[in-house]
């Protein structure tokens, strides 16, 4: 693979991973935490209404997981394409 092709393949893989993680970010915050909150609130989750819990607690746990997953996967990608620093 030429260095240019290598670079493009790396960037594409990065964008794909980013797209996936940002979709989860979007769905959790805006769809589950805001738009569908009333529907989700009919479900009881421990001592919480589910929609309320997602908006005030769950969303933040998901953000944390997303960032650490991205950092870890990118390290693997960096190595795979030989661009790690």
């Amino acid at each position: 693979m030429s260095s240019k092709e290598n670079r493009e393949a790396y960037w594409k893989a990065n964008l794909k991973l980013m797209g996936l993680l940002l979709s989860i970010w979007f769905i959790v915050s805006y769809v589950l935490g805001i738009v569908l909150v009333d529907q989700l609130n009919t479900i009881q989750f421990g001592g919480f209404k589910l929609g309320f819990w997602i908006a005030q607690q769950g969303s933040m746990y998901v953000y944390l997981i997303l960032i650490f997953v991205y950092a870890k996967k990118m390290n693997t990608l960096d190595k795979k394409y030989g661009v790690e620093d």
Binding site: M18, L21, L22, W25, S29, G33, I34, V37, F52, A55, Q56, S59, M60, Y63, L66, I67, Y70, A71, M74
Partner: peptide, 24 residues
Amino acid sequence: GYDSSVYLMGWTGGYVLLALLLAP
């Protein structure tokens, strides 16, 4: 109450954007 979720999500969710789109 629930309306304050905008601050909770808004002031933490921005870090996902920062980590994925800008910081590196």
